Amino acid sequence: MFAHIFLYRFKCLIRDRQLVFWTLVFPILLGTFFYMAFFNLNNDETFHPIDAAVVNNHAYQHDAQFKFVIEHISKGKKRLFNLKVASTQKEADSWLKTNKVKGYFTNGETLRLTVQESGLEQSIMKRFADQYRTDSSAIKSIAKENPKALQNGLLSDLGKQQSYVKEISGGSAKPNNVLNYFYSLIAMACLYGSFWGMKEVTDIQADVSARAARVNIAPVHKLKAFIAGSMAALLILFSEILVLLAYLHFGLSIDFGPRTGYVVLTALLGSMLGVSFGAFISALVKKGEGLKVAILLVISMVGSFLSGMMFLNMKYIIAQYVPLLSWVNPVNLLTDAFYALYYYDSLHRYTLNMTMMVFFILLFCGGTYLIVRRRKYASL
């Protein structure tokens, strides 16, 4: 009997084109748009030397220190500038106006930088000019107190910086914040599965729909019908999530890390979380189906926003200022579980997220059972 109910409930659910669209087609379309938007976002951008000029005036010709520094950083494959020497300031202005250079330096009592717009290249040039003025002033002070220091390679060290901070990665994978958008998309799709769970509870509430009234007068235990229907809904949702994972990985080359088994397990728990959550809300809210849909949609979208699907930094803002909210947000738990599998070598963080999801699944299932089993009708 259970298998019979499961089979026919599965056929009934799979024909709901609207639910299939929102739980399968819509996430695939959204994932495609994400890919189009973020395709080159994480590619390593090659630094191109900045087109810069220096005015060949009297001060420049007689300032060996500045000539050495700017010529030194304008040589080699890792040079900072493609340096051009202008015979006059008028020529340098002409180059700047025709966009042949991003800016030009003029030496004098102090080094001056001339640009006509703001941007990354201009900011780098300003940083160089500020650094040179600081270093030049320091060298002049040292030369007055200890002239021999200039003979020990001080000029060649000008501009060199040493970092004493070492970055240690939490895992062997390369950090990739763009993946968070796709992981939160999968989590949102799992939460959209709550509509399947809502449909199951709605279809056994005789005071909500005519179909539910017929189910309640059938010679089948209501709990058995509900479990069979929920299993059918879970199978459909889990299959949809697997299709979405396959499309993201094989179609869009989204990396989920080497732990394929754990990824599938996470998708299964995410599907169970979605269906149980929808069933719980549907059982808890006694109003019409429209209100239930609105509640599920609002919770899913707010949870997706807080997990960083629309604004990546929001995930870290919540983790920093309201950490408890990160642990009670099902979408964030799923997103974090997928990223933990990708990035961390240890399964500690992944286990924490999975444990919280299991807790919520048990909570939602237990709450749904307690509510549904007590609901009886005087007449149908």
Rank of each mutant, 00 (worst) to 15 (best):
G103N: 06
F66P: 05
Y183L: 03
I281N: 02
L191A: 10
P258R: 07
K11D: 03
V25Q: 01
E117A: 12
K77G: 15
K144W: 11
I295M: 08
D336A: 12
W22M: 11
P27F: 11
R374D: 11
L179G: 08
N107C: 13
Y35T: 01
I28Q: 02
N43V: 06
K102E: 15
F256M: 02
V55L: 07
L29I: 13
E91S: 07
V298N: 06
D255Y: 14
T368Y: 06
I318S: 01
M231N: 07
D63K: 01
F195T: 10
Q89T: 10
F360V: 04
W95T: 00
G278C: 01
A37Q: 11
K376T: 15
A86D: 08
D345E: 08
N329F: 09
Y247C: 02
L185K: 06
E145T: 14
A173E: 05
S123Q: 12
N176P: 07
I124Q: 11
V85W: 04
R133M: 15
S94L: 10
F359T: 12
P330I: 01
L284A: 07
L245S: 01
G278E: 03
N40A: 06
Y192S: 11
S184C: 12
F250C: 00
A86Q: 05
D336Q: 14
V302E: 03
R127T: 14
L245N: 10
F360E: 00
I186C: 09
I50F: 04
L296R: 02
S136G: 11
V264R: 11
M198D: 05
D51H: 12
L325D: 04
F277G: 14
V55C: 07
I142T: 07
I28S: 05
L248V: 06
L244G: 00
V220D: 08
L234V: 07
C12H: 08
H72L: 06
L29K: 01
T23W: 04
S118E: 12
V55E: 06
V20F: 02
L341D: 02
L155Q: 09
K287S: 14
L352G: 15
G197I: 07
I186G: 00
G257D: 06
Y343F: 09
